[in-house]
C-alpha cells in the first residue's frame, strides 16, 4: 500500500543520485538547467513531469548533507593527524588519504550543488498542483509559469540608492521585483482561477563602524510577497452574498478586492500580501488558499 506514512527518506545512494540526473527526460533536464517551469498540462501530467525531478532533488539534498558530514569529519581528522606526524611519520599516508577523500567529497558536492533546485518547487508548487488536481476535472488544462532561480539578481533590479551619509553607517538599498509564479486553470465548479505571485524585495547593505573602529557589513532583507488572485465565478452556479459596494475596497486583514462582471461571470480580483525577512523563504500554501477562500466566501449557490 503506497499510502502509508513513510519518513520520506530518500532511497538512492550518492552515486545513484548522480546517475539519476542523466536519466531525466530532456524536458526535465531543461527545467533544472533553466530553473523555469513553463507550459500547459493537466495536473496529473504536471505531477508526472515533476515527480522525478522532485525525487532527484530530495536525493540531491540528502547526498549533499552526507558529503558535508564527510568533509567535516575528514577535515578534522586530517588536521589532528598533522600533530601526530612529528612523533610518528608514517601517519602522513593517512593524512594524504584523508585529504584525498576530502577533495573527492568536495568535487561531488559542487557537482550536486549545480543541479540543486530551490525548495519552492518541492514544498510549494508541487503541493499546490496536488490541491488544484483535487479541485479540477481530470482533463482541465493547468498553465504554470514559475521562476525557480535566484531572486536577488540584476535582472530584477528596480532601483538602487545609497544614503547620503558621508560617514557611517553607510546604507545601500536595492529594490527587486520578481514575478515568480503564475497559475491559470479552470476548476470543476466551472470557476476560472488565476494566481500571480511576485516578490518585492528590499535589500539593505548596512556598513557600520563600531566604537573600536572595526568596520562591519550586514545584509538585511524584507520581502513582500504580493498575491493577486482572480476568480471568475459562473453566474449559473454562484451569486454574490453582498452588494457590490460592500464587496470591494479594503476589507479586513488587508485584502484589496475589486469586482467586475460580464454576462456569464462575477469576477473577483483579490490582492493580499505577506511579509518575510528570510530571503530563502518558502511561501505558506495555506495563505494562498485563504486568499482563494476569501473569494468563495463572497459567493453563495445561485437559487
Amino acid at each position: 500500500m503506497s499510502n502509508k506514512i513513510k519518513g520520506d527518506k530518500p532511497t538512492a545512494g550518492l552515486f545513484k543520485t548522480l546517475g539519476m540526473l542523466s536519466e531525466l527526460t530532456p524536458e526535465q533536464q531543461a527545467l533544472i538547467k533553466k530553473l523555469r517551469i513553463e507550459g500547459t498540462h493537466t495536473a496529473e501530467e504536471w505531477l508526472e513531469l515533476l515527480q522525478e525531478i522532485v525525487l532527484y532533488d530530495t536525493n540531491n539534498d540528502a547526498a549533499r548533507k552526507k558529503l558535508t558530514n564527510t568533509m567535516t569529519l575528514t577535515g578534522i581528522l586530517a588536521f589532528i593527524s598533522l600533530f601526530i606526524i612529528g612523533g610518528f611519520p608514517p601517519i602522513l599516508f593517512l593524512t594524504l588519504l584523508l585529504l584525498l577523500v576530502l577533495i573527492v567529497a568536495a568535487v561531488l558536492y559542487y557537482r550536486l550543488k549545480g543541479s540543486d533546485l530551490p525548495n519552492l518547487l518541492r514544498f510549494y508548487i508541487f503541493p499546490l498542483i496536488n490541491v488544484l488536481k483535487e479541485e479540477s476535472q481530470a482533463q482541465a488544462p493547468l498553465t504554470i509559469h514559475a521562476y525557480l532561480g535566484k531572486k536577488v539578481s540584476e535582472e530584477f533590479l528596480v532601483k538602487e540608492e545609497a544614503n547620503s551619509n558621508r560617514g557611517y553607517p553607510k546604507v545601500r538599498t536595492s529594490h527587486y521585483e520578481v514575478p515568480f509564479l503564475f497559475v491559470d486553470t479552470r476548476l470543476s465548479d466551472g470557476s476560472l482561477l488565476s494566481i500571480e505571485m511576485r516578490d518585492l524585495i528590499r535589500k539593505r547593505r548596512i556598513t557600520k563602524r563600531n566604537p573600536r573602529g572595526k568596520i562591519k557589513t550586514k545584509t538585511k532583507y524584507k520581502i513582500k510577497v504580493n498575491y493577486e488572485v482572480r476568480i471568475g465565478f459562473p453566474k449559473k452556479t454562484y451569486e454574490l452574498t453582498s452588494t457590490q459596494a460592500e464587496l470591494v475596497g479594503n476589507v479586513a486583514d488587508k485584502a484589496k478586492v475589486k469586482f467586475k462582471e460580464n454576462e456569464k461571470r462575477n469576477i473577483l480580483n483579490i490582492r493580499k500580501r505577506q511579509i518575510y525577512t528570510n530571503i530563502s523563504y518558502v511561501p505558506d500554501i495555506t495563505f494562498l488558499l485563504s486568499v482563494i477562500a476569501d473569494g468563495y466566501e463572497k459567493m453563495r449557490q445561485s437559487a
Binding site: D57, F126, P127, N130, I285
Partner: peptide, 12 residues
Amino acid sequence: GYRSSTTNDIFW
C-alpha cells in the same frame, strides 16, 4: 507544511 517527495501525499 508539505515535506513529502511523493506525488500524492493524501495524508498531507
